[in-house]
Every structure is written in C-alpha cells, then in structure tokens.
Simulated assay, not measured.
Amino acid sequence: MNATIANDIFRQSIRDYHQTDHVDAPLLNPYPASELTGLLYRKNWIDTVQWHLEDIIRSPAISPDELVAIKRRIDQSNQDRTDTVELIDSYLYEQFRAITPQPTARMNSETPAWLLDRMSILQLKLYHFREQTERPDVSAEHQQKALAKLAVLIEQEADLARCFDELLDDIQAGNRFIKVYRQMKMYNDPTLNPVLYGQA
C-alpha cells in the first residue's frame, strides 16, 4: 500500500458516489470488504455520504424533524468512520507486527489510518473545489478564489502523500512503530453517556 493507491481508491469512491449523488445510494464496494482496499473504499464512501449530509443539514428550509434525523445520522456516520479507521489501523498493525523496531525507533503521534482519514477527506475537498472552478453560474472572482484554494489543496495532497509513504517506510525499516489507541468514545455508549444511562 502507498499513497498513490490509497488516493486512487478514494477518488474512485467519490466518482462512484456521484453517479447517483444521493446520500441513500447503496455502498457497492468493488473490493473485498475485509481487505485493505475494501476498507479504504468503505472509509471514503462514509466520508462522502457524510459530506453531503453536512450540506443538507445547513439548508435554511430544512424542517426541525428532518434536521434532528440527519444530525443523528451524522452522529452514526462519525461512529462508523471511527470504527473503520480502527479496522484499517488493526489491519496495518498486523502487517507490521513481525517488524522489530530499532532501539532508537520513535512513535508517530498520528497512526497510518488517521493519516489516511485526512487524505480521504482531502480528496473530497479537491473534488468539490474543482466543481466550484467549473460552475457556469458564478462570477470570475468566485472561480479565481476557488482556484486559489484548489492550488493549496493540491500542494497539501502531495505533502500528505509524502508523509504517508515516509511513515510506512519508517515503520518497515523499524525506525518508527505503530501504537494503536482505541477512541473510547463515550457519547454513543449507553453505559457511559450519563444522559443515556440516566434514562435506563
């Protein structure tokens, strides 16, 4: 796995979603679900659906009932996103388990999967800023502002790709090691959220 392959999968997921451009479109993962490629595709699909839910929830015409329903859906999406990131980290951890870190090996504050999370969301920003540069219904000034932001995002894409590849290279060489912490979120757990367990 490298950044080029990961970004290609993220872009494929975004293109596939926009075939229907609907938040209720079914996830049809073209990769094996338990393989890293399948996990990356699923991860980006979750991000892409949530991106559009975040757009919908900001409509001034949205009804209170629909707003609450979408907010709950976004909460569940965030949990699914976290769970998928942790599956990716677990997969990578197993891949690197046999590597003995060097005595001077350092731990990275960000795991490979959380770096992939940033890369996935960045691909969504790139896609949608490119859309803004091509809109026929906006001013030249709007397009120029979008182009300026797109240029920054393209630079960030290259930087994150390099960081990801360097991190994996360092892990494989034993110069860095993976240490996976679970998120331990409390608000979705009925035994830990006082509002939820207080009603039990």
Rank of each mutant, 00 (worst) to 15 (best):
A105Y: 08
V152F: 07
Y31I: 03
Q12I: 14
Y31E: 09
Q50K: 10
S109H: 01
V49W: 00
A33P: 07
L36F: 04
S59F: 11
A161F: 07
R42G: 02
Q156V: 08
R42S: 00
D8C: 05
R135K: 12
S13Q: 06
S90H: 11
L196A: 13
I57R: 07
T84Q: 04
N175Q: 14
L168R: 04
Y31H: 05
Y127A: 14
E155S: 06
L40Q: 01
R182V: 02
I88K: 09
E94I: 11
L122A: 01
D75W: 04
Q132V: 09
I171C: 05
N175S: 11
L122T: 01
L192D: 13
L168F: 04
D159N: 15
V195P: 06
L27V: 11
S63E: 12
I9V: 15
L196I: 15
H52Y: 10
V23M: 02
R73C: 03
R15S: 07
R73V: 05
T37M: 00
L39A: 13
H52Q: 13
P112H: 04
I56M: 10
K185Q: 06
Q95P: 04
A33W: 04
L167Q: 15
P32R: 04
Q76K: 11
A3E: 11
I46Y: 06
I56R: 14
T100R: 15
L196S: 07
W114F: 03
A200Q: 08
D16Q: 02
E166W: 11
I9A: 10
D55H: 02
L150C: 09
P60C: 03
A151W: 06
D55L: 01
R182Y: 09
L92E: 05
D189H: 09
E157G: 02
Q143D: 06
R118V: 08
I121E: 05
M186W: 08
A161V: 05
P64I: 14
T133N: 14
F177C: 01
L28R: 13
K125W: 06
D189Q: 06
R118T: 10
D47V: 00
A161K: 06
Y91T: 15
V195C: 10
P190I: 15
H18A: 07
Y93D: 02
R42K: 07
R176D: 03
A98S: 15
K43C: 06
A25D: 09
D24R: 00
F164M: 03
R97T: 01
K43R: 11
